[in-house]
């Protein structure tokens, strides 16, 4: 009996450990809220997805900078560790704290109606960042993010410009199957290369990771060898993994196999600057300033565009060399 009790206590201890493991990442960094009226400080609750990638880290950094006290904001930040229920709880707590505006980078697209209606009843405007949701558009003021379809299209346009109607063998490293980033980039890219001389030999998911890109590219190289002339990797990380595989196969990345990727992370840009990648389309994580402006406009009662896209650039080798020294992420 006593032994059982001891085990029970320890189990509870282990559970507490597990729980604190979650809460440490989802804890709010700034508690308490000041009203907008007092001192004109705008209190904004930001519900971030978590910290699943370098892109996300840069995005969080950008938001924190844009919503700084120097800019007249008080930011209540929450990272939900990619757990939808934790994120909804965070938004609830923002409403209870009576923040002036709520910004959400939604973990999942569904399940938002109730909490958004609650925010609406409390007259707190909601601005979505990065990811879209399946809810009535009247429940949020605006959405701000990247246009994945256009990113794919820009990559495709470069391919058409470079190879024209010359028959060219291409392989594709797709992102995580089912993610909007992967699906939309594929759609945009395929639309752009329609009618060109590009022949798609194979397309396989590399899960947006370096190791995934490397392994799948090894397989492509074993199967098609030197006939591959072009690689479209749907993010930098997979492209960087593929470069390793291409070099191991005794070929020169960027020369024997031309490479186009999307993201423009620092590592990707470095590879581009030395000619191992030929072209990178940007997927801008530094959305903070534009989101902050939208928040101010909404609170000032101005009408804002419902769907707003970040400005994504694109880089070739010379532009990468110029951009690298100031690249933050």
């Amino acid at each position: 009996m006593k032994k059982k009790f001891v085990t029970g206590v320890l189990m509870a201890g282990a559970m507490a450990l597990v729980l604190s493991g979650c809460s440490s990442t989802s804890s709010t960094t700034t508690a308490g809220a000041t009203t907008a009226a007092a001192g004109k400080v705008i209190t904004v609750g930001f519900a971030q997805t978590g910290s699943e990638s370098g892109w996300r880290a840069a995005n969080t950094e950008s938001m924190k900078t844009a919503f700084s006290e120097a800019n007249g904001f008080k930011l209540v930040f929450n990272a939900a560790d990619n757990k939808p229920e934790a994120q909804i709880a965070a938004v609830h707590s923002f409403i209870n704290q009576k923040v002036d505006a709520i910004v959400i980078a939604a973990v999942v697209t569904t399940g938002w109606d109730d909490v958004l209606k609650e925010a609406q009843a409390a007259k707190i405007p909601v601005i979505l960042e990065d990811r879209t949701i399946d809810a009535d558009p009247s429940l949020y003021a605006a959405w701000f993010g990247d246009d994945f379809n256009k990113e794919g299209k820009t990559a495709g346009e470069w391919v058409v410009k470079t190879f024209g109607s010359t028959p060219t063998n291409m392989v594709v490293l797709e992102g995580t199957t089912g993610s909007s980033a992967a699906t939309d980039r594929t759609t945009g890219f395929n639309a752009a290369i329609k009618g060109s001389g590009i022949v798609q030999l194979a397309s396989q998911t590399g899960d947006f990771t370096r190791a995934g890109g490397k392994t799948v590219m090894e397989g492509f190289l074993q199967k098609y060898g030197k006939t591959i002339q072009l690689l479209f990797a749907q993010n930098d990380d997979m492209g960087l993994g593929a470069i390793d595989a291409i070099e191991a196969a005794g070929l020169k990345p960027g020369v024997d196999i031309k490479i186009v990727t999307i993201d423009a992370t620092k590592d990707g840009m470095t590879a581009l600057s030395v000619g191992k990648i030929n072209y990178i389309v940007e997927c801008q994580p530094l959305l903070g300033d534009q989101v902050a402006k939208t928040v101010k406009d909404v609170l000032a009662g101005k009408t804002v565009e419902k769907m707003q896209y970040g400005v994504d650039g694109a880089f070739d080798q010379a532009q990468a060399l110029a951009a690298l020294p100031t690249r933050k992420y």
Partner: peptide, 15 residues
């Protein structure tokens, strides 16, 4: 099996 998927060209959605 992982290599086979790439080698046979199984579409990503069916992997």
């Amino acid at each position: 099996l992982a290599s086979t998927v790439t080698f046979l060209g199984v579409p990503s959605a069916n992997v």
